[in-house]
Design a protein around this nucleic acid. Structure first.
Length: 570
RNA sequence: UGGGGAGUAGCCAAGUGGUAAGGCAGCAGGUUUUGAUCCUGCGUACCGAGGGUUCGAAUCCUUCCUCCCCAACCA
């Protein structure tokens, strides 16, 4: 029937797409595809979630389906609306529109009814064991569990007890509802897992309506089935929960509760990134310990952090596409993420000039106050981005990195006696180096070639080096924040036993430059605007910017082959 | 020592019995008023290891090894 299956462009299918296509060929779900992204609103989304979001929405997109956003809010003590809002914002920012917005808590009444059904079928029972006793009765990997003494209570008694649990007649933690499955199972999840616990906590949506709350394993599959999700995608650690996922839904023998076919859980490998941590617990620690400034610190792998850093949604989607989908535990190279943002910004970021660490240059054959204008393209390969005019004056700033008193081999930049091009302006030759009493180079006195206006000498002589510059009389001072990885080791979690993972923190992950000079047009840039500062990298205006006090974040540097050459040559 | 997964180049990842795609990284060139971009070329990957089946195996069988997950009233 499905004559033509849409195939993702120029790429082989990953295993989940193959499953979806096989289902479509069989006509399962009538060819329908409905996925869901089910975050628990207890933290901020990070790049790992982005992989899952792209997978779920991407699948729906390529097969003409849809994706629901569902908040998995079954544990009121951990969850909060603050997170609901940030999650909605982040998913939208990534570029996705969900079909239904749901909350597991919306299904609490239904879940309660279905639980009664399980009780009536003799598939669930109220257990009075304490938390410690339950753990003890459950056994461990080596010894099978033993049945709870309450396991054989009659459906009538269970029903009455469960109703009284719901009615608030018992104290928190005094009883639970358990599924009656198999205490001998090698799969610990099947040793009569908990379905409900008593917990008098205020829920961000249901308030104080309930004092019993369902557990993940019970709530998740039921929620999926209610929404008629076709493919329920989750990460590898839920693999051995799948029999439980299926079990709960299959107890609806006559099909009174759920539409068939039932959803299918499929697991894939979560994303890990080198030089960072991804778990909510770790990220929270970084925030709480003040190691970063907050969840949106540009060094954080959170979506709000990446956004503030200057990453585009497109680059993150491209990254998710490039890392692939499979079942092997994987650690993606942080360099791939950098590649993705450079690839995107290379095309769309207007070029500007900014001097990060200023070194004063005086053009000796110009007079103070003398100036001429030059027209500089905003993108070397995209004329549609236009040009801008810059004033060239006697006093300039160039970057300290672009001058060496003794030039190493293959040095194309400025050095005593050397000639370089100042981008878009002219050729200059360094005639004199001025030092302070301590011997630091504080000023360069250069001579410009008036015949080279625009950047080329009429005699055709070749000048290898081109430097960015800024007019000292027109430039605006700015703060620039440079970022390096948060950790010094690829796998911060791979610390030796007993050692603190925080010992691997990179003390130089943030460097703040307070005396950068930017070309005037940059002073009015709005927070979030992105530029390429020629020769130094891609930058984004930070939200901390104020009128007259712009702040830029370096999203990522440009590839730097000179540093490699120098490293090899010396 | 129980259950569930996974092992293909530094990092990802195709491949589903016919003789190892692609991307990132790296290396070497070329172009270039960003040492950027762009373009070109470059990897015997003993396909975790050993046996076996087969004319032929990364793909099938078998034994073994390694790594990851599971013993929250977390998700």
């Amino acid at each position: 029937m499905p004559a033509e299956l849409p195939v993702p462009e120029a790429r082989s299918l990953h295993f989940i797409e193959e499953i979806v296509e096989a289902d479509r060929v069989l006509g399962k779900h009538g060819g329908r595809v409905l996925t869901r992204f089910p975050p628990e609103p207890n933290g901020y989304l990070h790049i790992g979630h982005a992989k899952s979001i792209c997978l779920n929405f991407g699948l729906a997109n390529t097969y003409g389906g849809a994706t629901n956003l569902r908040f998995d809010d079954t544990n009121p003590v951990k969850e909060d609306v603050e997170y609901v809002d940030s999650i909605r914002e982040d998913v939208h920012w990534l570029g996705f529109q969900w079909k239904g917005e749901h909350y597991a808590s919306d299904y609490f009444p239904f879940m309660y009814d279905y639980a009664e059904h399980l009780i009536q079928q003799g598939k669930a029972y109220v257990c009075d064991l304490t938390e410690a006793e339950i753990r003890e009765y459950r056994g461990n990997f080596h010894t099978p569990g033993k049945p709870s003494p309450y396991r054989e209570r009659s459906p009538e008694e269970n029903l009455e007890l469960f109703r009284r649990m719901k009615a608030g007649e018992f104290p928190d933690g005094s009883r639970v509802l358990r599924a009656k499955i198999d205490m001998q199972s090698g799969n610990m999840n099947l040793r009569d897992p908990l379905m409900y616990r008593i917990r008098r906590a205020h829920h961000h949506r249901t308030g104080d309506t309930w004092c019993i709350y369902p557990m993940y394993d019970y709530a998740h599959g039921v929620s999926d089935a209610l929404e008629t999700i076709t493919h329920s995608i989750c990460t590898l650690e839920f693999e051995d929960h799948r029999p439980l996922y299926d079990w709960f839904l299959e107890q609806d023998g006559e099909g009174k509760f759920f539409q068939r076919p039932l959803p299918r859980q499929i697991e894939f490998a979560r994303l890990n990134l080198t030089y960072t941590v991804m778990s909510k617990r770790r990220l929270l620690q970084l925030v709480q310990d003040g190691i970063v400034r907050g969840w949106d610190d540009p060094r954080m792998p959170t979506l709000c952090g990446l956004r503030r850093r200057g990453y585009t949604p497109e680059s993150i989607r491209a990254f998710a596409e490039k890392v692939g989908v499979a079942k092997r535990d994987m650690v993606a190279d942080a360099g791939l993420l950098e590649f993705c943002i450079r690839e995107d910004l290379e095309k769309r970021a207007p070029r500007r000039m900014a001097v990060l660490r200023p070194l004063k240059v005086v053009i000796t054959n110009m007079t103070e106050g003398e100036a001429f204008e030059v027209e500089v393209p905003n993108h070397p390969e995209d004329a549609s981005m236009g040009t801008r005019r810059l004033s060239f004056t006697r006093d300039l700033f160039i970057d300290q990195d672009d001058f060496r008193e003794v030039a190493p081999r293959k040095w194309f930049r400025l050095a005593p006696g050397a000639e370089v091009r100042l981008r878009g302006a002219c050729l200059v030759t360094c005639r004199e180096v001025v030092k302070d009493p301590a011997g630091n180079v504080v000023e360069l006195r250069c001579e410009w070639d008036p015949a080279s206006r625009g950047g080329n000498a009429p005699d055709g002589r070749k000048v290898k080096g081109t430097l960015h510059w800024v007019s000292a009389t027109h430039a605006v001072r700015a703060e620039v924040r440079l970022y390096e990885p948060l950790f010094t080791q690829e796998d911060p979690m791979g610390v030796p036993e007993g050692q603190d993972w925080k010992a691997l923190l990179n003390p130089g992950s943030l460097e703040t430059l307070t005396e950068a000079w930017i070309e005037p047009s940059l002073a009015s840039a709005q927070a979030g605007e992105r530029f390429q500062f020629e020769r130094t990298g891609y930058f984004c205006v930070d939200a901390d910017s104020r009128a007259g006090a712009p702040v830029f974040n370096r999203t990522v540097g440009l590839k730097d082959s000179w540093s490699k050459i120098e490293a090899k040559g010396c």
